[in-house]
Design a protein around this nucleic acid. Sequence first.
DNA 1: CTGAAAGCGCTTACAG
DNA 2: CTGAAAGCGCTTACAG
Lengths: 353, 353
Amino acid sequence: MPVAQSRRSGAPGIADVAKLAGVSVTTVSRVLNAPEQVSERRRAGVLAAIDELGYRPNGAARALASGRQRMVGVLTGNTTRYGFSTTIHGIEEAARRRNMLVTITVVESDDPAHIRSAVDLVLGQPLSGVVGLEFDRMVSLALAQLPASMPAVAASLTGTNSSGLPRVYIDDELGARLATLHLLDQGHATVHHLAADYPTPSGSGRTYGYLRALAERGVRVPDVVPTGWDPLEARSAALEFLGDDVTALFCFNDDIAMGAISALRQQGRRVPEDVSVVGFDDMPLSTVWAPALTSVRMDFQRLGRTTFDLLCSQLDGTGRTGAAEAGGAPVLAKELPPSLIVRDSTAPPAALR
Amino acid sequence: MPVAQSRRSGAPGIADVAKLAGVSVTTVSRVLNAPEQVSERRRAGVLAAIDELGYRPNGAARALASGRQRMVGVLTGNTTRYGFSTTIHGIEEAARRRNMLVTITVVESDDPAHIRSAVDLVLGQPLSGVVGLEFDRMVSLALAQLPASMPAVAASLTGTNSSGLPRVYIDDELGARLATLHLLDQGHATVHHLAADYPTPSGSGRTYGYLRALAERGVRVPDVVPTGWDPLEARSAALEFLGDDVTALFCFNDDIAMGAISALRQQGRRVPEDVSVVGFDDMPLSTVWAPALTSVRMDFQRLGRTTFDLLCSQLDGTGRTGAAEAGGAPVLAKELPPSLIVRDSTAPPAALR
DNA sequence: CTGAAAGCGCTTACAG
DNA sequence: CTGAAAGCGCTTACAG
């Protein structure tokens, strides 16, 4: 026989469970939160009542009464592109292990209205903290608007991100240097570059690493070729702007490299015989691409996991030790290394063979 | 001068705002929820106080007091693969437009413990409803465990998903038929098939649509070749199982098609001259692949958006009308069409040219 | 080990 | 248009 349920929602409440089990509300709450403090006999009775009623604690009430939340907010500029979705996956995975839930908020653009509405959305929920995917400026701006009382960390692609939050990062600039130097070391006179999102700051790491490597070696610096994120846009940009003098090409990411190779093929140029190409991110498809793509591997999943763990250590209070001790360096930063994976899309220039 | 703040969290509460503005808590609440009911003079004062204190309403308290939530839960088996991440993107976008937040819960496997913990995680949060990505069995199982009191809808790839929830779907089986018939129409004696996740039920739609098309035409039915989701696994499976007799190949998705083409190329077989290949999903990369991939376009983003809208109509009560009237057909279902995009990876068999 | 009671920070009839 | 007060469903000292 179902017991009468008193709550407006129709769902059973903790009081219904208590009544059915013949104990106080306090005891039911203890069974839920600290079962070891309840005698085995009552515990069993309460559990049976919970089962019978199909009782589920109300999350909002729990959060309000305890002040603790089991949810973290992710602030990001995108959810589908490889680096983004993989980092989010890492965060989600780490959260799941700790029995926490992840909520996604997309910052549409760096328009102040969008920044504001994203921040409002995040702060309107009961969150224990937020992790920002600080891969572009709009997320930096949003993170900067969070109140200091909200624990926050960033996953980033640079050691010096502008939000100033504790962070974990994979150094884009280093990856770009590795890629560019690899091509120069093979004997190419210089390296061209297809850049997404340039000259906005978000493209800076990869593009600057490339420029710096050229400068170091004292070789000629070609104009950077701008493109969008879509492989088709990259193909168009390559068709339009890549001259016959190009023998080595460093691309902003693998999607763009694949678009560029498609353009070169269309022009009858072979990779790597006529032009060497390096991608970035090392997506799973880069191995089966023809030719197998030389790329910079970025462990985004680990980036996500590690950043989430950093947030947790902040929440536990553990994380602040370093900052307190450091004095001049008030912020934690942990670096994860990028690595160059050499495959078949790069070779010495024809002139040297 | 900052006003003393009474709450344990340190953040200002609605009472602090009321005191500073010289009004009642009720009025502050009205300014937040129904500003038109407050005189302009007081409204301005309250807004100024909110601004000065940097006041943010507590989401948990709001949810508890009002019984309304601004968050929907997404239950999914995966967050990174193309169809999944694109559908989630559509959901997120639609939610953002309505000022709602999305929370992601991954069901790890169909292990009852995983199902149970995913459901617990979802129900432990204050949600207004859930949308399940019912692309595989584990999500079906999880959805089935939600209490009837929790509004829920499904995005699906079949018109008859097992959860029985209201749903929006793109018919996988129809897409697979289109792909298979296209190859047969070009004159191939039969079509081979590389299937992920087969013979589990989740692979059913695409694989069954393929099998049905062969049966319809009365052609020989080759053994289905099983593979994993990764392009490299697909390449291995193709290398191992695809005999010399294959002239047409229908692949479970584009990743797998690309892996298979990589294998064919390695064996010295040309696409489409020696073997025609069709993919599924029509990822952005399929256009720049060599050769440009014939594929089945699935509008996952729209699937996500539409499913979210369906949930909203359920929440508004609008959605139930149809069910009530239908009697025998108690569930809403809306279909979105797949479409075949013919590119350069398919052609008539060599024998016919 | 157990329970009565206060309180978390809001919203919402109700009365004016 | 405005406010005093009850209540949302839990947790947590506090007392025993």
